[in-house]
């Protein structure tokens, strides 16, 4: 139904408060499977996602299904079929779970989508009347994922979905994403390399706002030296921050 790539990013740059946080980033996301964006803390991964959506000041080209969307407003881009699961969940704390989900329905959502969400997150059905701000981190992440999965999407942009979650919940989130990725391509920002190993087919590594590596996920993860050099952590190590990361971490904030 479309070209091989659902999303193409060409020469994307972005600024926050006048400071450049993304430098000339280019990559593609194929029409199926999970593409992971890796890199140390604060190198511009989150900013890249936000720039794609037009949430921050940007320049460069963004093509969705071969169509330039970089001049469009955020809500237009999203309505073209982009599901966004932001860093730190960003659920509406004062709204109930049901209201959070109702707000996210874009009109195109069908009974099928609602059923899927209800099956994936039975906990949310039980807590429909609860204020989202009173949920646990894991439950909030479920709300955030559910908001994206309620709609017919061409692509999901998922930003650090396992950040700060207990190991058991991390597994749950990874399973949900794996299920989602069977029907829609996913662009995933993730620090946890085990999750990347489980889900991702391709990786894009960003450092200091620039793409420094792209290729199959296996090739990167099987090369400990490369992992150490690009990400500053040993493959399989859980610590999501990495010690050297601290120096670059403040750059984008």
């Amino acid at each position: 139904m479309s070209g091989p790539n659902v999303l193409e990013v060409r020469g994307l740059s972005a600024r926050i408060a006048g400071q450049q946080v993304v430098h000339d980033v280019s990559f593609e996301v194929p029409a199926s499977g999970v593409t992971a964006v890796l890199g140390r803390n604060g190198v511009g991964k989150t900013s890249s996602l936000r720039a794609i959506l037009g949430l921050i000041e940007r320049s460069g080209e963004v093509l969705l299904d071969g169509v330039r969307v970089d001049a469009e407003r955020t809500d237009r881009i999203v309505r073209r079929g982009v599901g966004y699961v932001p860093e730190d969940r960003e659920v509406f704390a004062g709204l109930t779970v049901a209201e959070n989900l109702r707000l996210a329905e874009r009109g195109g959502s069908t009974a099928e989508h609602r059923e899927l969400v209800d099956t994936l997150f039975p906990d949310l059905v039980r807590r429909a009347g609860q204020r989202a701000g009173t949920l646990s981190g894991g439950q909030q992440q479920m709300v955030s994922l559910a908001r994206a999965l309620l709609n017919e999407n061409r692509i999901l942009l998922v930003d650090e979905p396992t950040k700060g979650l207990a190991p058991r919940i991390v597994t749950e989130v990874a399973e949900t994403l794996a299920a989602a990725a069977r029907t829609v391509p996913v662009l995933l920002v993730e620090q946890n390399l085990q999750v990347v190993e489980r889900l991702a087919e391709r990786v894009v590594v960003i450092d200091a706002g620039r793409v420094v590596h792209t290729g199959p996920a296996r090739a990167l993860l099987d090369d400990p030296d490369l992992v150490q050099r690009l990400l500053g952590v040993s493959a399989g190590e859980h610590d999501p921050s990495g010690e050297e990361a601290a120096t670059t971490a403040e750059a984008g904030r």
């Binding site: 809500d75 999203v78 982009v82 960003e90 509406f92 209201e99």
Partner: peptide, 23 residues
């Protein structure tokens, strides 16, 4: 629905647009 959008927008306007809503 507009009330819902306004309540959500008071909390986090950027996220409302990121859900595809013309705020």
């Amino acid at each position: 629905r507009y009330g819902l959008i306004i309540r959500a927008g008071v909390e986090n306007r950027a996220m409302v647009t990121a859900l595809g809503i013309d705020v």
